[in-house]
Design a protein around this nucleic acid. Structure first.
Lengths: 109, 109
DNA sequence: TAGATATTCAACCAATCAGTTGACTAAGAC
DNA sequence: GTCTTAGTCAACTGATTGGTTGAATATCTA
């Protein structure tokens, strides 16, 4: 079984839209702290704290070059969360749910 | 794009081990509030609050029968979180990461 | 050396969260 | 009717969170 605490901090890190925006940005490639902070209407220190949350969750890695810190997406941990969800997301999908989807078609939230 | 607030409350709901345990239990079938609370070393009111969080996140649904409330897993919302992760979990997986896995083999966290 | 740039750290604040207890509502059992 | 069982609600607590500001630490530039 996957370590519970790992899932705790991973899902908690993913629960914030600012941090998800950062991950989205990083999916296009490395970025510095300032790069990530720029579009965020938030102080640099605030953004820095968000990055630290992502880092502690193992979702990003940091590489220093001089005074700049380059962040990169760490797919491994994301895949762990993905794998956990897989089990439940697949749950009773086929039979009941395909029918359900067919019926509700466009009332999907 | 998926509604940000939906992802917020979904991932936040998933970030707690008590609630994930509840979902695990529900993946085996319907259960009452008491059923879910029993193994949890927590007051019934406490468990009830966790269930409400899951419900508000759309992760479980509730059916009342007399004084008992039966909860069931709602796969739809789980699949939404799963789909969001899919994009990032798949990120640069093949090339670099397969190699990385091969190298680090058993230092995996 | 001095000044600007990139980033973190520490202290603080308001809001939210996970848990508790005690009182309440509603439904079954006797 | 009365007692018990199933569950929620309200009020409270301590811990955590997301944000701020101001100062500190490096590093680059001139």
């Amino acid at each position: 079984m996957v370590d519970q605490e790992t899932l705790d901090i991973t899902f908690a890190a993913l629960a914030d839209p600012t941090r998800r925006a950062m991950l989205a940005r990083l999916s296009e490639g490395e970025a510095t702290v300032s790069d990530l902070a720029k579009p965020l209407s938030m102080s640099l220190a605030g953004a820095s704290k968000h990055i630290q949350v992502l880092e502690r969750a193992g979702l990003v890695s940091r590489r220093r070059d001089g005074r700049q810190h380059f962040l990169a997406l760490e797919a491994r941990r994301l895949r762990k969360a993905h794998a956990w969800l897989q089990h439940y997301a697949a749950f009773w999908t086929q039979a009941l749910d395909a029918l359900e989807d067919a019926l509700k078609e466009d009332t999907h939230d």
